[in-house]
């Protein structure tokens, strides 16, 4: 049930992002009328209202979905790939390699992520989408690698792994057939939940002024646009805020549903 709702919401969000140019009533950066259409509350003509630069918020939120979701999905893909590779290496090799890698991960987890992200982004002259993906993905794998490592270490000592080795299976076969499939479920779940987290983080960064530069819309910079107007024009921040909430919820539901679905014992 949860998985259906989560999947439906995620697919709807992706569809909205894909077809944003067709669905959006206005170009997202178009300043419609700086005289009369600034901070207009939601109406039939502008269902989400307009922002302080007289841009249509519905169009901006729809277009923002493209960027926010792309950044989140790619960053999570990067984090999961790196995290799985490192967790697998660490858990399978054990010994010194394991100790060194896991102390690095501990160090990475010990420093607040937002701090690392801000410092690294400060090194770029201009924040580009690629830079954002790289930094969000590059700081997102610590947790993944630790979970993968724990699962690999547990799987390594299972009797079915011993049985496969006794049968003469190569290390490659043991890892691909017996270890990874049993590690995949938690990774998929973290990945699904992670998308929501990255959307939040991206919004937070933009709010702090370190995000995708204007006038390109992202949910983060829409919220940033509305932060001074929370009392006078709350719909500006709320529009993208709701989109973030729905996205986080959708991916959490999907992740939660997947957790159950991927366990062969409950299927």
């Amino acid at each position: 049930m949860r998985i259906r709702l989560g999947l439906a919401l995620v697919l709807a969000l992706v569809a909205l992002a894909l077809f944003a140019p067709l669905l959006a009533p206005y170009p997202p950066a178009a300043q419609l009328d700086l005289e009369t259409l600034r901070n207009v509350p939601p109406s039939v003509a502008h269902p989400f209202g307009t922002d302080p630069y007289s841009r249509d918020l519905l169009s901006r939120v729809l277009h923002g979905a493209r960027l926010s979701l792309t950044i989140a999905l790619l960053a999570v893909a990067l984090a999961v790939t790196v995290g799985t590779a490192i967790g697998l290496a660490s858990g399978w090799a054990g010994g010194l390699a394991d100790t060194v890698l896991m102390r690095l991960v501990d160090a990475g987890l010990a420093v607040p992520k937002i701090f690392i992200v801000l410092v690294v982004l400060a090194l770029w002259e201009k924040v580009t989408v690629v830079a954002l993906i790289a930094i969000l993905g590059g700081t997102g794998w610590f947790g993944v690698s630790r979970i993968v490592r724990a699962e690999v270490r547990a799987a390594r000592d299972r009797e079915y792994v011993a049985a496969a080795r006794a049968l003469g299976a190569s290390a490659r076969r043991v890892v691909l057939r017996h270890v990874l499939p049993n590690v995949a479920a938690p990774v998929i779940v973290i990945a699904a939940m992670g998308v929501g987290q990255v959307v939040l983080l991206e919004a937070g960064l933009a709010y702090l002024g370190v995000g995708v530069p204007q006038p390109t819309p992202s949910w983060g910079n829409i919220i940033a646009d509305g932060q001074h107007l929370l009392l006078t024009a709350p719909w500006v921040a709320t529009s993208a805020g709701l989109a973030v909430v729905v996205t986080v919820l959708a991916f959490s539901l999907l992740g939660d549903g997947l957790r159950e679905h991927l366990d062969p014992r409950t299927r």
Binding site: R158, E159, Y160, A162, A163, A164, R177, H178, P181, N182, P264, R265
Partner: peptide, 11 residues
């Protein structure tokens, strides 16, 4: 092996 559950890959 002893444990007929643990010695079979659940997937």
């Amino acid at each position: 092996f002893q444990d007929p559950y643990g010695s079979l890959n659940p997937r």
